[in-house]
Simulated assay, not measured.
Amino acid sequence: MKAPLLISKEEILKFYKPINPLTHKGLQGHAVIIAGSYGKVGAAVLASKACLKSGCGLVTTFTPKCGYQILQISIPEVMVVTDENANFITNIHLHLIPQAIGIGPGIGQELGTQKALFEFLRVNKVPLVLDADSLNIIAENLSWLELVPENTILTPHPKELERLIGKWNSEAEKFQKTIAFSEKYKVIIVMKGAPTYIINKQEIYENTTGNAALATAGSGDTLTGIITSFLAQGYEPKYAAKMGVFLHGLTADIALSETGYQSFIASNIIEYLGKAFLELEN
């Protein structure tokens, strides 16, 4: 395995696009977040808010009916479309074509949701981020990956990665299997961990930001929102993934002196995104 390339501030600044002073929300991208089920609407809230707070102009969240009030009250800036089912997603119908879609946080693995995911993947042509339960469902149906757009971004944590590529006996084998998987299905894999790596076919990138504070519930949901936001803003998938993991980690580096490791939660990632962008631009 060749040595990974580092994702540093210098690397990010090569492709980072500062905001055009004359822009408007219609030019900043429209993202859709498909997330949530009964008891896990918080995942939809975190992903959607992180998406908005990363510069996306418009965010629409697709969620079961039980998530409607929660989302409308907790994030008034997000538009909400609901499934006909109360507790989990059964039929993904979007009356718009966004610039990017993030799917999976908190959706669960009900049979109806599995069918809905398949139908969605069959017709979707929009740049895509697959996370959480969408990965767990796909792990049981790997052929579905042949339906996704090239350079779709997958964001598995270690257990989800194992379900996708199978068990490994060493770090080297884990990377070999992930590279082979990325090449076979033409997808970009964000291997979440300490540190986080991005595998894009034969290219391996190692993130240089982040710390143990990120090991907290909902952290991955915010990452999905952030990466989806950059895709919607017109970044190529490989750049959206790099920028996403870099800024996500940077929030924890900036916050640490104020929160400590233990008291940092996923909402703090969203809260510190502004400071992370300022750090990038200074």
Score class of each variant (00 low, 15 high):
G218R: 05
G244N: 02
K238M: 05
T222E: 14
Y239P: 00
S229V: 14
L223F: 12
G220P: 08
D221P: 09
A241C: 04
T216A: 04
T222Q: 13
K238R: 14
K238C: 03
H248D: 06
D221L: 10
A241L: 03
A240M: 07
S229P: 14
P237G: 01
F246A: 04
A241K: 07
H248M: 08
P237C: 06
T224I: 10
K242N: 11
L223I: 11
A240I: 03
A215P: 09
G220M: 10
T224Y: 08
F230M: 11
T222F: 14
Q233S: 06
I227N: 04
L247E: 00
S229W: 12
A241Y: 04
D221S: 12
L250Y: 02
L247F: 04
I226Q: 07
A240N: 06
L250W: 03
A240Y: 04
L247C: 02
M243I: 14
T216Y: 10
E236M: 14
T228W: 11
A215T: 15
T222W: 11
T228D: 11
K242S: 11
G225V: 11
L250N: 01
G234C: 11
A217Y: 07
S219K: 05
E236W: 05
L223E: 09
L247K: 02
L231F: 14
T216M: 07
I226F: 07
V245I: 15
L247N: 02
G244I: 02
H248C: 07
T228G: 12
D221Q: 13
G234Y: 04
T216N: 13
M243K: 15
V245E: 01
V245W: 03
T224N: 14
G218T: 09
A232P: 03
I226G: 07
G225P: 12
G218D: 05
G244F: 01
G244W: 04
I227F: 06
I227G: 05
I227R: 00
G249T: 01
A232Q: 03
G234H: 07
L250M: 15
I226L: 12
K242T: 01
G218L: 06
T216S: 09
L247I: 11
E236D: 15
F230Y: 15
A217N: 09
T228R: 13
P237K: 01
A232H: 08
G225M: 14
L247W: 02
K242A: 14
Y239H: 15
G220Y: 08
M243R: 10
A217C: 11
A240H: 05
M243S: 05
A241V: 08
F230E: 06
E236T: 14
G234I: 06
F246H: 01
L250D: 05
I226C: 02
G220V: 08
E236A: 15
A240G: 03
